[in-house]
Design a protein around this nucleic acid. Structure first.
Lengths: 126, 126
DNA sequence: TCTATAGTTAGCTTCATGGCTAACCAATTG
DNA sequence: CAATTGGTTAGCCATGAAGCTAACTATAGA
């Protein structure tokens, strides 16, 4: 569980780098070798490999070596885990907005009630 | 546009830290002063303020000072921006899965057609 | 077997991050 | 006005991240 949270640290940290986001985007379209992945980047291979390693440690990417070529693939579960975090926050945020709106509505009603001698009966809004 | 991408860098980097994620989660529930936000953390104020600053630069949080108290609130747009990134990746991923599945289906059909005269229909496993 | 290819390891720089203390405003409050 | 509170600025330190080169391993191909 604390492990899970730590995983979130690593996933977000991994995605904070544009090179690594590009790798993830590339892998969304299908698996690829390290060489293929590295090709578009103007970067020494060892530097590039560090990015791959960060992605693997975060759990976003898995790889396996066969012969002398290492093939990388996306592991979609980790991506979903991070997406979940956003959805949870959004849910809390939206619940708050609902409460806020309800509060504003109540204020409005009270104010209206206090100011005027209730000329017409107020209906509840939406 | 490149600006937007840079924004993503900063948003993910901001969320990579558990303290800052906790701040964001706290702010989902409503605005708060720096002091209130800092209270649960065993950390010197200047250190804490750095986190607030990172969140502000990323666009996740806005704040305004009135009197001697600074009030922070979440700016949900930035959160949504990051969430969008995930959804786009997922869309690409799922499209690929669909293509892959279609490919496997085609293979199966060809193989079945070639090997056997189609004895029983296979049920989908779980 | 020799050579070229695909990664890997080791080690080095440079800069960013996350933490601290100490000293410093500037509003409130007594 | 004096003291407290809430935040800010400045500056220091340790660690880690991102890049590089050089040298190495191990497989594939000629």
């Amino acid at each position: 569980m604390a492990n899970q949270l730590n995983q979130l640290d690593q996933i977000f940290a991994a995605l904070a780098d544009p090179t690594r986001r590009a790798i993830v985007m590339r892998l969304c379209a299908g698996e690829a070798s390290v060489g293929e992945l590295a090709d578009p980047f103007d970067m020494a291979l060892p530097s590039f490999m560090k990015h791959i390693h960060v992605l693997e440690v975060s759990g976003l990417v898995q790889s396996e070596k066969s012969g002398r070529v290492r093939t990388c693939r996306l592991s979609p579960d980790a991506l979903l885990g991070a997406e979940d975090w956003f959805q949870q926050q959004r849910a809390i945020w939206e619940a708050r907005l609902d409460r806020f709106e309800a509060y504003v509505m109540k204020l409005k009603k009270e104010r209206a009630g206090a100011k005027r001698p209730s000329r017409t009966t107020k209906r509840k809004g939406s």
